[in-house]
């Protein structure tokens, strides 16, 4: 049996009286797309932030290929092969699309950015950045400033930046949030391509996307995992329907 890249053990986090992560156990296998679904406010983003190291859990452990990383800083996790995208688009508005991605390729090239070479002269980094833009279909927009890109293009750029880090696991927090159906199709295609390269923990509200991509689905409600299994199993789960969707069946 293959060892999971990521394992969560009894992860717990609360804000005051509100338990946002409640004893969560979860794992992601190499080259698997593991979807995490749940209603608004279930604690999905908070969970992603704990895996990534932006928020420290109160209890429990995060394991990376069996090694505990619960308390190491974000930048070290990225070095180990974690990358994330944000629910609220997070790009560098003043930089061109290419520079946004180049920042990622430069980071993965060396852990200590040089102060005296000229960034633009690093051809390997530039080429790799260009390749990543091509993979998400933004090659023609590489010289546009990020703030001039359309919303959908920025969502693509966000994925290109994660991709440029050549991660072993990507944490994608609602990559389709707020995009129209055309963009949504092209993003799905990009994700399908990404899964060739790495494992993905995918938070997503759009069930079509989840069913098209996921190997496994876990359902988070009020901080707790209430169901986990293949998409078909989760679909059938009565518990899930009640907790997540209320009594009426919305599927």
């Amino acid at each position: 049996m293959t060892e999971p890249v990521l394992q969560l053990r009894a992860l717990t986090k609360s804000y005051g009286g509100l338990i946002v992560t409640d004893n969560v156990d979860l794992n992601v296998l190499p080259n698997e797309v593991h979807a995490l679904i749940g209603p608004n406010g279930a604690g999905k983003s908070t969970l992603i932030a704990q895996i990534f190291g932006e928020i420290t859990p109160d209890k429990g452990a995060v394991l990376w290929c069996g090694e505990e990383i619960t308390r190491i800083p974000v930048h070290q996790r990225v070095r180990k092969g974690l990358a994330r995208s944000f629910q609220v688009t997070s790009v560098l508005p003043e930089f061109t699309a290419l520079d946004n991605v180049r920042l990622a390729t430069l980071a993965s090239a060396s852990s200590n950015p040089s102060a005296f070479e000229v960034a633009a002269a690093n051809l390997t980094a530039t080429e790799r950045a260009q390749t990543c833009l091509e993979r998400v279909g933004l090659a023609t927009r590489s010289n546009a400033r990020a703030e001039a890109l359309s919303y959908g293009e920025r969502r693509h750029l966000e994925l290109a930046m994660a991709l440029a880090l050549e991660p072993r696991l990507m944490l994608l927090d609602e990559p389709m949030a707020g995009v129209g159906s055309d963009e949504s199709h092209s993003l799905t295609a990009v994700l399908r391509d990404l899964r060739q390269s790495c494992a993905i923990l995918l938070v997503e509200h759009d069930m079509d996307v989840v069913f098209a991509l996921a190997d496994r689905v876990s359902v988070l409600v009020a901080g707790r995992i209430v169901a986990s299994g293949s998409p078909a199993e989760v679909h059938e789960d009565h518990e899930v329907k009640r907790a997540y969707f209320g009594e009426e069946d919305v599927w």
Binding site: F52, V74, A83, F86, P93, F95, L103, A104, P113, L165
Partner: peptide
């Protein structure tokens, strides 16, 4: 310059 615009993003790219 990236840190000025969006520090969280730079952290997520692996910069200390």
């Amino acid at each position: 310059a990236g840190i000025r615009q969006n520090e969280r993003r730079l952290k997520a790219l692996g910069y200390n």
